[in-house]
């Protein structure tokens, strides 16, 4: 009951959070700009050259989907960092922690509140994916569960990283570190053409940093049957277990740090 109360209260706080609203509004603006160009391209093409239209429109749709999905990772990290730091900053944490609530229970409630927010985000994102596919005149071939579970696990991982970092540092710094980590993870991924890093460092960082490629639903979110990539259940299990394990380790680190830190108005 305590964890549920903290979770629901965190969710209520996050949906009213001005920075998050601003963050989402910015993303919606970019999407609308891309959508308008998408519609212009689509209308310029005639029915006769449908293949040409698909060639121009589908990459744009793919970019928009990737943008929304990537934005979700940053939203997850920021929400987790802000959910904890805003309680510390305002001092509301003092009245909450004066109740018979253990520190890990408080942290878990906060974390689950962020996951609830991300679940709403994923629901909107999946709806948007289908809408974009419909505008492009294509069909999403991947299973709906993949579009929900994969981003949720990835967001669980990013929010856990954000939570662990914010127990040590300012939320803006924590967010910057998450951003840096995710960019670096892209640069050191096996397919990336990064020449300025020595191989041993690339390998080390690849194992250390969260692999967003492995947990990207973009592996499955193919809108043309020709590029559909099938994955076996064992591949799904390994990829999801990796994400959940990473999230669990980060959450445990956050709990350990939070357990021994002073609670005061920052």
């Amino acid at each position: 009951m305590k964890i549920r109360a903290i979770m629901m209260n965190t969710f209520s706080g996050l949906v009213r959070n001005k920075i998050i609203i601003l963050f989402c509004a910015g993303c919606v603006c970019i999407l609308l700009l891309m959508l308008s160009s998408l519609l212009v391209i689509r209308n310029l093409r005639s029915v006769q050259n449908a293949e040409q239209m698909q060639a121009a429109v589908l990459p744009l749709i793919g970019s928009m989907m990737a943008l929304v999905s990537g934005f979700g990772s940053l939203l997850a990290a920021w929400s987790a960092a802000d959910a904890l730091s805003s309680e510390m900053r305002s001092g509301t944490i003092l009245a909450v922690m004066a109740r018979p609530v253990r520190r890990w229970e408080f942290l878990l409630g906060k974390y689950l509140g962020v996951q609830l927010l991300m679940l709403v985000f994923v629901a909107i994102m999946v709806g948007l994916d289908y809408l974009l596919a419909w505008i492009g005149g294509a069909h999403i071939q991947s299973a709906p569960w993949e579009l929900i579970v994969y981003p949720m696990v990835r967001y669980a991982m990013f929010s856990a990283i954000g939570l662990a970092l914010v127990t040590l540092m300012h939320p803006i710094l924590a967010f910057s570190v998450v951003l840096f980590m995710s960019i670096t993870a892209q640069l050191v991924s096996p397919g990336a053409n990064t020449t300025f890093l020595p191989e041993w460092l690339k390998t080390g960082l690849f194992y250390l940093l969260p692999s967003t490629n492995l947990l990207s639903e973009m592996r499955f979110l193919t809108i043309t049957r020709a590029t559909l990539q099938a994955a076996t259940w064992s591949e799904h299990a390994v990829a999801l277990a990796y994400g959940l394990d990473y999230a669990l380790v980060c959450f445990l680190i956050a709990s350990w740090i939070f357990h021994s830190r002073s609670l005061s108005r920052d």
């Binding site: 009951m1 305590k2 209520s12 706080g13 001092g91 509301t92 003092l94 009245a95 004066a98 018979p100």
Partner: peptide
């Protein structure tokens, strides 16, 4: 803590809650 009632200095609150909702939250906590 289950037997303590605590009022911090400059009590801070969740601005979006009403008084009954805040008290219900604290009961749940």
């Amino acid at each position: 803590k289950a037997q303590i009632g605590f009022l911090p200095e400059n009590f801070a609150f969740y601005k979006y809650l009403t008084a009954p909702k805040l008290l219900r939250l604290h009961l749940a906590l």
